[in-house]
Simulated scan of single mutants.
Amino acid sequence: MSQQNAIHLHDGDLPADLDLGSVVAIDTETMGLNPHRDRLCLVQLSSGNGEAHLVQIRPTSLGGRGADAPNLKALISNPDVTKLMHFARFDVAVLQHTFGVDVPSVLCTKIAARLVYTFTDRHGLAYLCRDLLGVELSKQQQSSDWGAPVLSDDQKRYAASDVLYLHALWAKLEAMLIRENRRELAQSCYDFLSARAKLDLLGYEDPDIFSHRA
């Protein structure tokens, strides 16, 4: 990560006077992959200007504010703010479950990659950043303890890297979607993400209600 990238850690909520613009890259870190069991620990955000804002979410039992994050909730639920994510299906579900709000106006670089990067089955963020942007992302902290009361510098750098390059990555992928006449199809997928997340939270990931199984 470039030395010019700044990382700001916030306890419990975003500052009230912070303006991240109309397109905000967002990612989450949790204790695991089950939103009902594994709590949200960190929300990362970037306006694409080389700065990352990390909001540490700590439960009240550990001295934190829990889901009492009015500024963050206002941003993620604002339909006029585009939320840019990678694998948005999971992040939207976690955010909706934790904060009890809908998360509209979402773009997902993983869905975009799956629609136009059909010559490979590799659609992870690290691979796409390396292939499209020439940026190497370290994934060493991916499985670390995000519920720790104090995050290490390595954890903070890893978390920031998941949002710092999403604007540039989306620009590349959107151009490919337009070139291949799939931008409208992608938007239809994005418009469904909030409902898809609600289905997942209700347990309709398996069985999948869209499958033909009897």
Rank of each mutant, 00 (worst) to 15 (best):
A113T: 03
A88L: 02
G100H: 05
E51N: 15
M85P: 08
P35I: 01
T60C: 08
P70D: 13
G100T: 03
R65D: 12
A25Y: 05
V81E: 11
L133V: 04
E29V: 01
S77E: 10
V43I: 05
A52K: 03
P79N: 10
V101A: 06
L107K: 13
P79M: 11
L72K: 12
T120F: 08
L115W: 09
G100R: 04
R39S: 10
L72S: 14
L72P: 04
E136I: 10
V101Q: 07
G50M: 03
V23M: 10
S47I: 01
D27C: 06
A113D: 09
V23C: 10
C108N: 11
I111V: 15
A113R: 00
L33C: 05
L45A: 15
Q56H: 13
L133R: 11
L107G: 02
A126W: 01
I111K: 13
L95G: 13
L72W: 12
M85V: 08
V103S: 06
S47Y: 05
V116Q: 09
H97Q: 13
S47P: 11
D121T: 09
L133Q: 13
A67C: 08
E136D: 15
Y127K: 09
V103N: 06
S105Q: 14
G134Q: 07
H123Q: 08
G124C: 05
L75F: 08
S47E: 08
A25I: 02
N49A: 14
P79I: 07
A126L: 00
P35R: 00
K73W: 03
R65Y: 08
A52P: 04
T30W: 03
N34Q: 05
